[in-house]
Simulated assay, not measured.
Amino acid sequence: MRPIDVQRLTVGDTTDRYTRMIRAKSATGALAPGTAEVYARDVLTFAELAGPERVLDDLSGADVDEVLLKFAHKPDGRRRSPSPSPGAGGPRAAARQSAASQARFRRSLSAFFRYATITGWVQLDPMRAVTLRPKDRGGLRSQRRALTTEQADGLLGAARSMVSAPADPARRADQRTELRDALIVLLLAAVGPRVSELTRADVEDFYVNAGVRYWRIFGKGGRTRDVPLPRAVTRVLEAYLADGRRLLDKGREPKALLLSWRGRRLARGDVQGVIDRVLARVDPEHRRGVTPHGLRHTTATHLLAAATDMDAVRRVLGHSDLSTLGRYRDELPGELEAAMRVHPLLGAEEP
């Protein structure tokens, strides 16, 4: 018999209440704003896929399995397929959800149903009856996220070339975003910020101390970190502040570092488009699609491969624990061979 304290609320009602709750936690500082928005977006997507008019307590594990399958095949609007997809509404169809996105969506649902169980919206947590495993959702495996040295050099070289490239005469002056796009890619690859940290950055967060330009990054949990910028990044930043940002500034967001051509603070969802535009300039032989988070992995991987102190890398990325670095470290081709050629006990090999 159903307990009398179970509330017969619809999926739409419960997800709306849950969304308000996590946004309230964000407003009080109990939850990072970026994390709250991810949870909110995922549960609202769940409501759309499950049917907002259905009673939440009536959902079974099979129903959640169906939602997970639907999400796996849902186009990812942030990215495009690398090859044409006939009959998909255009020459470049939207890519499906990555394995990482599917795993994140599943975690969001688990958190939602734990809360629903506590509040009496469901009698039993249907996540316990879910039978699908990642391989059943299409066999997607997480691709190595970090770019190789050649791929990273190609991307950064393309970004630097945009700084001195002649302006496109077909575009209005206030729509020329080459300097801004180059700066975004260089900051992502050199410093490895979270995309939310990048888009929240203000002009005043960049300061000079003893001749070195620093970026004060406001990270998760209210933590801040001051990261010195490499000279190559500093030069592009100063060029953007002196010229590129001035073209985009319409007085609407006087503090924001990164502006859209409409003069608004750049949105998180726009950053992937910036990366893709820079990637289009890379030699196809060294081009590989990458997300903002993939560039964060690239930063960690190459700093660690260069024997940079682990605690310094942790501080650059804004991790609270060294153990987190293990999830950001990818293997690089040839790194073991290179390490053994300069073995500290045997000395460097003869060329």
Rank of each mutant, 00 (worst) to 15 (best):
I184F: 04
R160E: 13
K250D: 00
M340A: 12
L155Q: 00
R296W: 01
A232R: 11
T324N: 12
G263H: 10
W215E: 02
G221E: 01
G211N: 01
V38K: 15
L336G: 03
V290G: 12
M21C: 03
G138P: 09
P75T: 02
L336M: 12
A40S: 15
R144H: 13
A339T: 04
A312H: 14
A72P: 04
A40V: 15
F112K: 00
T234S: 15
T298N: 04
V203T: 14
G347F: 05
T148I: 09
A99V: 15
G34R: 05
R2E: 07
G87D: 03
G192N: 01
D168G: 02
R281T: 09
D136N: 15
V185T: 06
A190V: 00
Y328D: 05
V316Q: 12
T324C: 12
D321T: 01
K25G: 04
L69C: 07
D202V: 01
L248K: 05
D270Y: 05
T15P: 06
E349S: 12
P351W: 11
D57K: 07
A129Q: 11
T298G: 04
D42M: 08
D125K: 07
T199V: 14
R223P: 00
D205C: 06
R128Q: 08
R288Y: 08
T45N: 10
P86F: 05
Q7N: 06
G29I: 05
A24I: 01
